[in-house]
Design a binder for these strands. Structure first.
Lengths: 235, 235
DNA sequence: AAGTGGTCTAGACCACCGC
DNA sequence: CGGTGGTCTAGACCACTTC
């Protein structure tokens, strides 16, 4: 069930991998149009997706070229902790610390855009990479969305939510530096006051309805945040 | 010299601002096609740019809708310190600490993809927001790109580089939490060991050629990093 | 079934780059 | 100047949502 632009994109990806070096030009759009027997718009659609990935770049009036290796890494995308760790070459695991239902604090209510006091499911988890503690996570999900009775320490929160019809599509994150308090320092096995990365995340579905509010503390010596940005968002 | 899709995008933006609330539908693509007298592809192009900005979202088979306020803030884009501060409602200023030419360290050479020992321009600047110190910045630019004799404390590095034909287009950043050393703590006027956000940035032009390698320490109590991410990068 | 956005065609002309 | 990517048209059909 592949669309034409997807097969064209796959063809170009294969051509780049097999026989082109960074900064070499790929065939022009009109050439690709002829060799693939599709319209130029379809070629452009395929190339646009590969530019999004950072595999190619183009210059108006000049051509389309293979990106340099430092441009390979993609624009930031939303991933689960497990996916994130896997992409970094680590095996993720998790230990459920507490699981409860509580009324939303004013902070949680504001973040999720719900009335204060609304019942929420709250999960606190210790996150491990290759068996070593790397982060402490504190998540709130609005009451009706998650049935905590069905949640176990090995469950993927995003999968459970998706199965219930709430697929996470987008998130806003705020990253700050924080000195660890006693409890978090103990859980992460570092001295009190050690700097850590604190990440607040509000996730929502495609329609912009809030799904979760999470605050995660990452050990600074084991975790850094990486992202690529471009000068213009449009195209 | 505005393109049609730009004027259509501006029209839609105005319509949203003046008379639509979050989650309300905008007119269908075929309606807009008729009312604006342009082809549907042009309408789609306009809508695509607005979706990129987070102003709209669409659902296949259902319609195109106004995004909720929490989705307003855009996907992360590359900005200068001055632009960044302005968007946060602060006035940026700068104090040039040191300016020199030095051979590239192995770290700098690796980051910029140049041979170790290549001469680079190095700038160290104290960054201020509303007159208060907020960050210490340490920037290296490969030798031939920047004439430090022409650089003053009020110059915009990106503008000077752009004037010399090296326009910053993309950057890769790494964010970590760090305890401030004595010198940085003194410059930022906080106690030794205070947590700070450390941001490494390698910027490149549209062709992927490295332009600058910067390391910036931000006061944790005055600066946080914000970004929106989506589940899939393509479309 | 009707309406929506998603893909696709076969052209055309414009804006930009390099020689 | 010729070749490149960027914009645009007027249609067509497909895939999905909603009723």
């Amino acid at each position: 069930m592949a669309y034409k632009y997807e097969t064209v994109a796959a063809d170009i990806r294969a051509m780049v991998a097999s026989s082109l070096s960074p900064h070499q030009a790929i065939p022009s759009e009109r050439e690709l149009e002829a060799t693939h027997g599709v319209s130029r718009l379809t070629i452009r659609h395929a190339i646009a997706t590969l530019i999004d990935e950072g595999l190619l770049y183009n210059v108006h009036g000049s051509g389309t070229f293979v990106g340099s290796p430092t441009l390979f890494s993609k624009t930031p995308k939303l991933t689960s902790f497990t996916e994130d760790m896997k992409s970094r070459g680590h095996e993720a695991s998790s230990r459920l610390l507490t699981m409860s239902r509580e009324p939303a604090s004013t902070e949680t209510a504001h973040a999720l855009g719900i009335p204060a006091g609304t019942e929420c499911a709250r999960l606190r988890r210790l996150r491990l990479a290759d068996g070593e503690p790397i982060a402490v996570e504190d998540v709130r999900v609005p009451g009706p969305l998650l049935d905590i009775e069905e949640f176990t320490s090995t469950s993927s929160l995003y999968e459970v939510l998706a199965d219930a019809g709430h697929e996470v599509y987008r998130a806003e994150q705020e990253i700050k530096a924080i000195a660890l308090d006693e409890e978090a320092a103990h859980l992460l096995r570092v001295p009190l006051g050690t700097p850590a990365l604190g990440v607040s995340r509000v996730s929502s579905d495609r329609r912009g309805r809030s799904i979760e509010y999470a605050f995660t503390l990452y050990r600074a010596d084991r975790y850094t945040f990486q992202l690529a940005v471009t000068r213009e968002a449009d195209k």
